[in-house]
């Protein structure tokens, strides 16, 4: 499949919704260069292309509550760092942007863990352990569009179990299985060797599968219609 790049009325390169990586990268490059030269429209087009993916990564890794604000922050960080971005070798704008997103998510999870270590867990805050993060209770987000779009029990359970994985395992799973990146690109995003990516992904899948088994056996279940997951302390102990 190929991408036919054309130029819109504002002189910005536009693609026609395809998946050809090379063409996408070339179109991205033109947009990045325009944005580096000071075009807000070019950066807006880049945001249009990738904001849903970035939001998806953040949603999977940090949860629904943080996703919109953190996504905004990620794009702002990207904009501020854009002047240093250069296309070379395997570096693509998408990879670079996803790396910013994943790092921001990992930092956010670490921040939560530090806060949790200092203050102790609050009643409505995720429990972050060395083995991953567990949502203790979830604020009411039943009216959020993105929650409405993902309210089937299975989907909520999948999301909840992903949220129990360690940040690095969660990132590997999110990029490959949820965002459909190939191994090479996922490894670039995570800045790790291909072999490490394979190991992380396999380990994440195994852990997910084991916890899914618990869910299917009724030992782990979303208890509330309001959120993706609530797990009791007892269940956390069993999961360990």
């Amino acid at each position: 499949m190929s991408t036919q790049a054309f130029v819109d009325g504002e002189g910005l390169p536009v693609t026609t919704g395809d998946t050809d990586r090379g063409a996408m990268d070339r179109a991205d490059q033109a947009l990045v260069e325009a944005a580096q030269a000071g075009s807000p429209e070019a950066f807006g087009e880049l945001a249009r292309r990738y904001h849903a993916n970035v939001h998806g990564i953040v949603y999977r890794m940090c949860g629904a509550d943080e996703a919109p604000d953190l996504t905004q922050e990620i794009f702002l960080r990207a904009l501020r760092a854009l002047r240093k971005f250069q296309f070379h070798g395997d570096a693509s704008f998408r990879t670079w942007l996803y790396r910013i997103a994943v790092n921001a998510c990992i930092n956010e999870l670490r921040r939560r863990k530090r806060r949790s270590d200092v203050e102790g867990p609050s009643l409505d805050e995720d429990i972050v352990t060395d083995d991953g993060t567990v949502s203790r209770s979830v604020p009411d987000e039943s009216r959020s569009p993105h929650v409405l779009a993902e309210r089937s029990e299975i989907q909520r359970a999948v999301h909840a179990i992903v949220a129990t994985l360690t940040p690095k395992h969660r990132a590997a799973l999110t990029l490959v299985d949820l965002e459909q990146l190939d191994y090479e690109e996922a490894a670039l995003v995570l800045e790790c060797p291909l072999g490490t990516l394979k190991s992380r992904l396999a380990r994440a899948r195994r852990q997910f599968a084991e916890k899914w088994q618990l869910y299917e056996e009724g030992k782990l279940s979303p208890e509330s219609e309001r959120g993706p997951r609530t797990v009791s302390d007892e269940e956390i102990g069993r999961l360990r």
């Binding site: 807006g44 849903a52 939001h55 905004q72 702002l76 959020s144 993105h146 989907q155 299985d177 997910f208």
Partner: peptide, 23 residues
């Protein structure tokens, strides 16, 4: 299971907010 997950729809005003920030 994971691949069957539908993409998460971003809030409808997210893109506008990002563009506003960028501008």
């Amino acid at each position: 299971l994971l691949e069957a997950m539908p993409p998460v729809a971003p809030p409808p005003d997210l893109l506008a907010a990002i563009k506003r920030d960028a501008a």
